[in-house]
């Protein structure tokens, strides 16, 4: 599964970078969302993928039974998802506010406002 996922992550990255290089600030934010998804999947894939073995310990046992998926990357990604959402919410409101004030969503024109 890993090679397929690797290619999928590559596609996500490509789409993210392409969107981030657009003029529209909305597209930049969409690119950012794609980028965070891509990064999460990157960590997930490179840690190795395991089917149907969540990192849980059965009731009464001290150790999990058999091979389980690596919990550490999952914990990292969990943090990343939530942070990415915080950043996204902030960014979306920020561009909304910026548009209200400077009346443009074009990144190339926004640079002229810091006079």
């Amino acid at each position: 599964m890993e090679p397929i996922m690797a290619i999928a992550v590559g596609c996500l990255y490509a789409a993210a970078i392409y969107m981030m290089l657009r003029r529209s600030i909305v597209k930049l934010v969409i690119g950012l969302m794609l980028l965070s998804n891509a990064a999460n999947l990157l960590i997930f894939t490179s840690a190795g993928m395991t089917r149907g073995a969540p990192p849980l310990i059965p009731v009464g046992a001290m150790q999990p039974e058999g091979i389980i998926a690596d919990p550490l990357p999952q914990a990292l990604i969990l943090t990343a998802i939530v942070i990415a959402f915080g950043v996204l919410a902030f960014a979306v409101v920020l561009i909304h506010r910026a548009y209200n004030i400077i009346h443009t969503d074009n990144l190339d024109q926004m640079k002229d406002t810091d006079t």
Partner: peptide, 27 residues
């Protein structure tokens, strides 16, 4: 821009393929 984006995508794919094999530190 698409060229830049595709380059990055290819690089990230290769990166994953390599990191799967490489274990630098004990987990």
């Amino acid at each position: 821009d698409a060229f830049v984006a595709v380059l990055t995508g290819v690089l990230m794919t290769l990166l994953i393929m390599i990191t799967i094999d490489v274990q630098l530190f004990p987990s």
